[in-house]
Nucleic acid binder design. Structure first.
Length: 268
DNA sequence: ATGGTAGTAGAACTA
């Protein structure tokens, strides 16, 4: 394979989304698919569905909320669950896998509920904790990808109605600052690298907005970021809207990035 | 300004 493909998908319950995830894996054959909101305990995770499609799957979940998983062609050489600091581990929100020459950090960043709430303060702190997580494990010149449902739309062009939505927990100056502080560790938004200043490109369409997908009423809150080593070797990054248009869909869709393997001296 | 739907549940919470 010439390229290394990484995708991210907030599935909103993996058991309710297998009819979309498994065919998508077969058709797109990414090397790695990061999933969020799997909403399943580890003992109930549908491992065999992935294995039958030719993927390993590494995961950590809880009964009703959160849950993260990573499907991969190859077995990871290392796995880290959670944030590994003095705070709540949040191992159902953060999972990291390593392969020879590449690290994949998959996160489901806390949504924040309400800007006045402790949940929002927790969200802001989470970005800071994540920056520390990166800093304590890796150098910014390592080949590393951070992806997932990051619950932040970084710019006006990342939401359909910036005036009305300003102040939302995923769209306000405080969350922009927290996100920017984390990315300042050395991570670049790969979608924007390939689609600079392009408005109207979204990964999330609220179930509660009638015909949100058809009307283009979405948010770009799922992201794939990479350190400069990988960013400079990225070939493409696209949002696939087909999963959102499918029957029994998640409210999110799939984002995928492709990296050139030939120029990495066999590192990935 | 509110509520809209979908998920896990088997009422109420989360997003």
């Amino acid at each position: 394979m010439e390229s290394f493909k990484v995708a991210t998908y907030n599935v909103n319950s993996i058991r309710s989304r297998l009819h979309i995830v498994i065919p998508w894996l077969r058709e797109n054959s990414p090397d790695v698919l990061c999933m969020q909101e799997t909403k399943v305990e580890d003992s109930q995770f549908p491992v065999s569905a992935f294995e039958e499609a030719g993927y390993r799957v590494t995961f950590r979940g809880a009964k009703r909320y959160n849950g993260v998983a990573i499907a991969s062609r190859n077995a990871p050489t290392g796995v880290i669950h959670g944030l590994e600091d003095d705070g709540p581990p949040d191992d159902d929100r953060l999972i990291t896998v390593s392969f020879p020459g590449i690290v994949i950090v998959n996160s489901y960043v806390p949504q924040g509920r309400d800007r006045e709430s402790d949940h929002f303060r927790y969200k802001l702190g989470w970005f800071e904790r994540l920056k520390h997580f990166f800093d304590s494990h890796w150098s910014a010149d390592a080949p590393l990808i951070w992806c997932g449902d990051l619950n932040v739309a970084p710019k006006n062009i990342d939401v359909h109605d910036p005036k009305r939505l300003l102040g939302h927990v995923c769209f306000n100056p405080e969350v922009w600052e927290a996100y920017k502080n984390t990315t300042s560790w050395g991570l670049e938004d790969i979608y924007r690298r390939h689609h600079p200043e392009e408005p109207g490109r979204y990964t999330f369409f609220d179930y509660r907005v009638p015909h949100a997908l058809e009307r283009g009423l979405g948010w770009r809150i799922d992201h794939i970021l990479a350190t400069s080593f990988l960013a400079s070797r990225s070939i493409a990054c696209e949002i696939d809207l087909a999963p959102r248009a499918a029957e029994k869909t998640s409210d999110h869709t799939i984002l995928m990035a492709e990296f050139d393997r030939g120029k990495t001296d066999g590192q990935i």
